Simulated assay, not measured.
Amino acid sequence: MMTAAWMYTLIPAAAAIIGATVAVNTRPGPNIVSAIQHFAAGVVFAAAAGEILPDVMHRGSPVATVIGGAIGVAVMLLVSQLETRAKGPVGLMTAVGIDILIDGLVLGIGFAASPRVGLLLTIALTLEILFLGLTVANELGESVRSRLKIVGITAALVLLLPIGALLAAPVGALPDPVVTGFFAFGLIALLYLVTEELLVEAHETPDRPWVTAMFFAGFLLLLVCEEIIG
């Protein structure tokens, strides 16, 4: 199953490269970018609330949940501090690289839970990674002139996705309380992604009703996918 996790990381990786390619050729307007962020946030939130949260609650390991959740909070706050202090292209690449590595780890944890959870997380993270590809390309476009180099740097960064998934490979074989801790970590990482990154950046542009509605469209889309997959 972890082989499947590694292979599924190629889908969001391809989305990031596509996003970077689009961004270097046609810069999306702020409303379009905000709509993508809202939509991705809705999908990721649905994946966290509908898949990871029930799994954590039904495992009956409150101590492991607290420990895993606390580690998740600490790690994401450290990432936030790094992103705040990041200066220039190198700082940006470091912060984005850590984000992508954590996304790969969360995806691997999802597949450790079940193929269904892993597949739904793949859908959610594909949209988030697509946005990261757009962001990286836009930021690099201010200092790097070569379009091919920008896409190449983005492609190199998304290699951290399968690395993160492979790091999560042993999770399924660990004792149940430890697995619960990993799931709590993944839950916190996804919620942080929605509340402190996607939605915060999405609201940097003036709100429009149709843009805001994209959050709920993304949420409902993943719910429908859950029903179809069963």
Rank of each mutant, 00 (worst) to 15 (best):
G133M: 06
L132C: 11
F215N: 01
P209A: 06
E201P: 05
E197W: 12
V200S: 04
V179N: 13
L222E: 01
F131L: 15
C225E: 13
I153N: 07
Y192F: 08
W210P: 09
L221T: 00
P162F: 02
G152H: 09
T205C: 09
A168Y: 09
L222R: 07
E142I: 13
L167Y: 10
L160D: 00
L223F: 11
E201T: 01
F182W: 11
L160H: 00
V171W: 02
R145G: 15
E139M: 13
G141S: 12
D176F: 12
P209V: 09
W210T: 08
G181H: 08
D176R: 15
A189C: 11
C225M: 14
W210G: 09
T205L: 10
G164K: 08
P175R: 00
P209H: 13
V211D: 04
G172K: 13
R145L: 15
V194Y: 06
G181R: 12
R147N: 14
G152L: 11
F185H: 02
T135K: 15
L157K: 02
E197L: 12
L187M: 12
I163R: 07
P177K: 10
L187W: 05
L187R: 09
F215C: 02
L222I: 06
P162G: 07
F183Q: 13
G164L: 02
T195N: 10
F215Y: 10
R208F: 06
V194Q: 06
A168M: 06
E197I: 03
P206A: 03
D176W: 14
I153G: 07
L160S: 05
D207M: 07
D207K: 07
E142D: 14
K149Q: 13
V211S: 06
L132R: 06
E201G: 01
F182K: 10
A155W: 01
R147A: 12
G152N: 12
L220A: 15
E197F: 12
G172N: 15
G133A: 08
L132N: 03
V136S: 06
D207S: 11
A137Q: 03
L166Y: 08
A213I: 06
I163P: 04
E204P: 01
Y192S: 04
L174A: 13
A165L: 07
G186Q: 05
L199E: 01
G186P: 08
R145M: 15
G172D: 13
V158W: 06
A217L: 10
K149W: 14
A169H: 11
F215Q: 01
L174Y: 11
A202L: 00
L134R: 02
R208I: 11
G164R: 03
V158I: 04
L140C: 04
V194I: 08
Y192M: 00
C225Q: 12
L191K: 04
L222N: 01
G181W: 02
V144P: 02
V194A: 08
L191C: 03
A165G: 04
F182E: 08
